[in-house]
Simulated scan of single mutants.
Amino acid sequence: MTQRSTEDRHPASAGLHVRPAEGILADLFAAQQAALAAVGPALPGLARAAELGADALRAGGKMGYAGAGSSGLMALADCLELAGTFGLPPQRTPMLFAGGADALLHMVGSVEDDPALARADVAQAGLGVGDVVLVLTASGSTPYALTVAEAARARGAQVIGLANVAGAALFDLSDLAILLDTGPEVISGSTRMGAATAQKVALNLISALVGVKLGHVHDGYMVNLVADNAKLIDRAARIVSAVAGVDRATAETALAATAGAVKPAILVAQGHAPDTAASLLSGQGGHLSALVG
């Protein structure tokens, strides 16, 4: 197997085990900071990825995530947040994780080498024309990730490949290739460290920008959140109050009239009927900017 930069030796690796605890942590922390810095050069690619994802979702398509092992966990963490943060239906943001739910309880390495499993996952997710899938692999050569990319493209979906190694095989199968060049790990080959940190930050940025482009973020507020617990119900009321410029009681009344939907509640709080609010939002593609002061 070709040596990858993620498997190389980090300068801080030698003698790591004999250093004082705070020294070990200082080296690990410095490596995490360096991993964050690796995201900077990828910003143009991340912006393009968000455009592709938002375009797919706006047109009724899917924005999927795929990965194995640590990369899959980073993808899963971002994917699961989309419903609560931006109100995106889970069926529109499928997660393809090598080994499925069982692998989340006990990580099994063999599943990341199974191309048949990858092809089955792509088919089950229903990825095709008009869809986008974010495929992650630190090494850029994980068989599960490569097969997902190949199968998704064959079905007409666009592939956004994120890897931590220059010249990754994944990039040859991607419509958009994003390099997060984090280099060697202080604990050699442990890509749950720097590589995964960069991946998670990159995904945070992509999904946040997708939310903005879909009109689900207004003045930094999550105006399309799904309020399904006490914390989010309280947050929804505070958002309506702040954006509409009304008191808490008016905000709560408006939310009751819209079954908890924040965007139309903002307009209801400003005096519109619920049906009118829904119509106004539809006319603006879900964006509040032209409808509130």
Rank of each mutant, 00 (worst) to 15 (best):
Thr2Tyr: 08
Thr2Met: 14
Ser5Phe: 00
Glu7Tyr: 04
Ser13Tyr: 00
Val18Asp: 10
Asp27Val: 02
Leu28Gly: 01
Ala38Phe: 00
Val39Cys: 06
Pro44Glu: 03
Glu51Thr: 11
Leu52His: 07
Gly53Lys: 06
Leu57Lys: 03
Arg58Cys: 08
Gly60Ala: 08
Gly61Asp: 04
Gly64Cys: 06
Leu73Met: 15
Leu76Gly: 09
Ala77Met: 12
Cys79Asp: 01
Ala83Trp: 11
Pro90Ile: 02
Ala98Asn: 02
Leu104Met: 14
Glu112Val: 09
Pro115Met: 03
Ala116Glu: 12
Ala118Asp: 05
Ala118Lys: 01
Asp121Lys: 01
Ala123Trp: 01
Ala125Leu: 04
Gly128Pro: 11
Asp131Phe: 11
Val133Arg: 06
Thr142Trp: 07
Ala145Lys: 10
Arg153Cys: 13
Arg155Ala: 15
Arg155Pro: 03
Arg155Gln: 15
Ile160His: 02
Leu162Trp: 01
Gly167Ala: 10
Ala177Asn: 09
Gly189Asp: 04
Ser190Ile: 05
Lys200Asn: 08
Ile206Asn: 03
Leu209Lys: 05
Leu209Met: 10
Lys213Pro: 00
Met222Glu: 05
Met222Ser: 06
Val226Asn: 11
Ala227Asn: 10
Ala230Lys: 14
Ile233His: 14
Ser241Gln: 15
Asp247Thr: 05
Glu252Pro: 00
Val262Ser: 10
Asp275Val: 15
Ala278Asn: 13
Leu288Thr: 12
